[in-house]
Simulated assay, not measured.
Amino acid sequence: MTENQNRVAPVTGAAQGIGRGIALRLAQDGYDVAIADLDFQKEKGEGVVKEIEELGRKAVFVALDVTDKDAFEKAVDTTAEALGGLHTLVNNAGIAQVKPILEVTEEELEKIYRINVHSVFFGIQAAVRKFEEQGVKGKIVNAASIAAVKGFPILSAYSSTKFAVRGITQAAAQELAPKGHTVNAYAPGIVGTGMWDLIDEKLHEVNGKPIGQNLKENVDSIALGRIETPEDVAGVVSFFADERSDYVTGQVLLVDGGMLYN
Rank of each mutant, 00 (worst) to 15 (best):
E3S: 12
N4Q: 15
R7P: 08
R7C: 03
V8Y: 09
T12K: 01
G19A: 13
L24V: 13
A27H: 12
Q28W: 15
A34F: 00
A34R: 07
I35R: 02
F40D: 14
E43W: 01
E43L: 08
K44R: 10
G47F: 01
V49R: 13
A59K: 12
A59E: 10
F61P: 04
F61S: 06
V66S: 00
V66H: 00
D68C: 13
D68T: 01
E73R: 07
A75P: 01
A75D: 00
V76Y: 01
L89W: 07
N91C: 03
I95F: 00
A96K: 04
E106N: 02
E108L: 03
E108S: 04
L109C: 05
I112C: 05
I124F: 04
Q125H: 15
K130A: 11
E132I: 03
E133Q: 12
S145P: 10
A148I: 02
A157C: 08
G167R: 13
Q170I: 12
A172L: 03
A177K: 11
K179T: 13
A187S: 11
P188T: 04
G192K: 15
G192E: 15
T193E: 14
L198R: 14
D200H: 02
E201I: 07
L203F: 14
H204A: 07
H204E: 15
K209P: 05
K209R: 10
G212T: 02
N214Q: 00
L224W: 15
E228M: 14
A234T: 08
S238F: 08
A241N: 03
R244A: 13
Y261S: 11
N262K: 08
